[in-house]
Design a protein around this nucleic acid. Structure first.
Lengths: 258, 258
DNA sequence: CGTTCTATTGACATCATTCAACGCCGGTGG
DNA sequence: CCACCGGCGTTGAATGATGTCAATAGAACG
């Protein structure tokens, strides 16, 4: 499940986890264009759907969600972002943003303008690699998410969501067991393609099973192993196994006849 | 719905729709390294999940599917590819392919090695833009697909799938109304996250409604407008409308009390 | 405080999967 | 040339998971 796993670890030296940035570009050409760091608050937008694409951003602190819009006007959250994640790469396609981005809490982003970026891409092979790696990772991430929504049942989806969050908090150096959700159940439901009531019910179910403990936005994973086991249980749609089963049955009936 | 819409229009001058390529790189440095075009047949793999990432490919002719694998071992088709589409960009992340790629019919691909690509990226700003644009498009495409699976019911998903295919065939200069599916119902079901029986039922339902005509793999869209209307009918989960409804109701009951 | 947003829970309805049986087609081998 | 078989596709009946509707209650925020 995506949850945009550390999409852009290591892109900005000033930013989260102080890792190498979009370039040594600071050192060379664009010495003047120093990075702009800006603060946003809960509910504010970094950009909206359709806005002109003029920069990439890296989330330094806080969290955010990206919101897409369907043909019939419904909104869908396509990912959650945490410190270190790259934001806005969807803009290269049409040079406008296909998703809006809203902050879930007070957050800070680092802005990298397109010109600045292009120069960095010319000069630094490591920057090229990093950008491609990040976009590629976002791609892989979304594929995973597609898998999840397509093949897992509600409980598995929720379990995967929690485990992914846990992993990402751990990467940030936070607790993998105890964390606070910055998004509402409505957001989670929207993201996972389920009803909020289902989310609620499943959370309490997992709580009764002593697998997790939930109190408002605070989540404690009591037994990560059992949570992982939720994913393995084959209660979903099985595709190729389906064919295999069919083959098995055909052979069985054939052998019975014979 | 993705169906990987024309992910890489205009990337290889020798290839589909004779458009500008991954570079004028032929003209400059790597004159010797001429493109390798290779033919594959139905069922053959271009690469498998986990294979080393060593080149990007552009599909010149035919069609293909990319296959991901989930935690519990199930397979999921993450996209279909048609002439002009770029293949393999998922590899930049871990330098191994996260998906396998299998051809659905006899097909031809153009291979662009990584070194070749990197040189082109240094020399040509248009190549940089094209690659980023293509990867970004794939990203947007998958977001759309996520939206579809998350928010649309089975009929809407299938309608969107057919409409997307139609659009892509049209882009290729083929008929938008009449085309042949190169994938099986099993593939479609897997891709859309549904059961094959559901696909079958819905196809016959749409046929009875005189919206489409299906015969084996051949599909004729009799009434594209009505097919598009299928998408607009709000029979799915409505999210923000949900909140709005709630607000409305609250206000209504409030005004009733008042 | 009161309004709004969020979250929980129960009863009910329904869409989609599952299970099962059958028909079609193309290939393969007798 | 026919028979058989495996892959693919269709259809019906039954079950189940999940969405919908409704009522309630706590938290956040002004």
């Amino acid at each position: 499940m995506s949850v945009q796993q550390s999409i852009s670890s290591n892109l900005c030296q000033h930013c989260a986890r102080s890792s190498a940035c979009f370039g040594s570009l600071n050192n060379t050409t664009s010495q003047t264009a120093h990075r702009s760091h800006k603060i946003y608050h809960r509910g504010e937008s970094l950009f909206s759907m359709g806005d002109e694409f003029e920069a990439l951003y890296i989330l330094r602190a806080g969290s955010a969600k990206s919101i897409c819009c369907s043909s019939n006007g419904e909104e869908q959250i396509s990912g959650f972002y945490y410190p270190g994640d790259m934001i806005g790469a969807d803009g290269f396609d049409s040079m406008t943003h296909s998703c809006g981005l809203k902050f879930l809490e007070t957050s800070s982003v680092c802005r990298v303008g397109l010109k600045e970026l292009d120069m960095a891409l010319i000069e630094s092979s490591s920057t090229r690699r990093k950008l491609l790696k990040n976009m590629s990772h976002a791609l892989v991430d979304e594929q995973q998410m597609l898998m999840s929504i397509g093949k897992l049942n509600s409980e598995q989806r929720l379990a995967k969501f929690l485990l992914d969050l846990s992993e990402r908090f751990q990467i940030q150096g936070l607790s993998a067991n105890t964390f606070d959700l910055s998004m509402t159940r409505i957001d989670i439901a929207n993201f996972l393609g389920m009803a909020i009531e289902t989310i609620s019910r499943l959370l309490t179910k997992l709580q009764h099973q002593q697998i997790i403990k939930v109190n408002r936005r605070q989540v404690i994973l009591l037994d990560i192993q059992r949570l992982q086991q939720c994913l393995l249980v084959d209660s979903g749609i099985s595709w190729l196994t389906d064919l295999q089963k069919l083959n098995l049955k055909n052979r069985q009936s054939a052998s019975l006849v014979a």
